[in-house]
Computed example of a mutant assay.
Amino acid sequence: MALNKVLIVGSAPDALKTADWDTSCFSHTIVINNAWKACPSWSCLIYPEDFPVDRRPGDEDSYGKRIVTAEEFVPVQNEFGGFVYAGGTMSFTAGYWALGALKPDVIAYIGCDMVYEATPGGSTHFYGLGTADPLRSDVTLQSLEAKSLRLQALAHQKGCAVVNLSEREKSRLCFPRMAFASLETMSQRPDIGTPLPCAVESALSAESDLGYWVESGRYWEEVGRFDKQKLRDIDDLWLATATELALA
């Protein structure tokens, strides 16, 4: 049986590479926000409630494709602990939605490094200058590295590997790097390291004890009750999952 591979495309300049890729090896190609303009072969578009209507694809561009809104992704995100612990930015939301809704063997990211260094032409995104959403002041985004390790660890618990197809030097994602050509021909799930179970359970237990649960997903409406230092402490536990793996 063929591997169930899912591609997630963000808005970094290298998202444009996907226009030249044969994405037929993926069961689903998920584009985030504006990235549908960079990746013609997209099959799913995911965006938040405040994504401007004039930036969404028209009927002609979205015909036969799936639009994923908060009505769908909030319940799935809640299955994995909710937005406060997962990180309130669409790169991670897309990953959790894919993990829960599509049950993949592999999730591959491109255009989601969250570095935002301008290209020689002055662009931070494939469409030019953009707003660095994951770098905004947000109590859930104090460590993008920790949030990426959390997603990787929970994906591994579901039998799913998460990789980064980016060739950029820097990335805030801690996923193992992989070349598109290697993933394209892959027939078996990659045997890449997973955080030690004890470290993962410690982090999940700390989240449960803290109890920062917002069923609606609109955590910003209750941000006054979240202790920044306690969330930073949990981030440190997720960062430790990578450290323990390196020492194992």
Rank of each mutant, 00 (worst) to 15 (best):
S202W: 04
S171F: 04
L204R: 13
Q188N: 09
M186I: 12
Q188W: 03
T194K: 11
V200K: 01
E215L: 09
L210P: 02
E221C: 02
F180Y: 15
L210T: 12
V214F: 13
A179D: 15
P176F: 00
L210C: 08
S182T: 11
S187P: 05
R189V: 10
A181Q: 14
T185R: 00
E201F: 03
C198K: 15
L204A: 06
P197I: 03
P195N: 02
A199R: 14
Y219A: 07
T194F: 01
A179Y: 13
K170V: 09
C174R: 14
W213Q: 10
C174Q: 12
E201P: 04
A203D: 12
A181E: 15
C198P: 03
L204K: 13
L210M: 10
M186Y: 05
L204D: 07
A203C: 10
E184C: 05
E222N: 08
R172G: 06
A179P: 14
Y212D: 03
R218D: 06
V223P: 00
F175M: 01
M186Q: 12
A206F: 09
D209T: 14
Y212A: 01
W213M: 07
A206S: 12
S202R: 15
E222C: 02
A181W: 08
F175W: 14
V200A: 05
P176M: 00
F175V: 00
E222S: 06
I192G: 04
K170C: 07
W220T: 08
L210S: 09
P197T: 07
S205V: 10
S202L: 07
E207C: 14
A181I: 04
S171D: 10
E207K: 03
G217S: 06
V214D: 11
F175G: 07
T194Y: 02
S187I: 11
V214K: 06
Y212I: 01
L173R: 03
F180E: 15
E207W: 01
E221Y: 02
L173K: 02
V200Y: 02
K170E: 11
R218S: 05
E201A: 13
L173A: 09
Q188A: 11
I192R: 05
D191R: 10
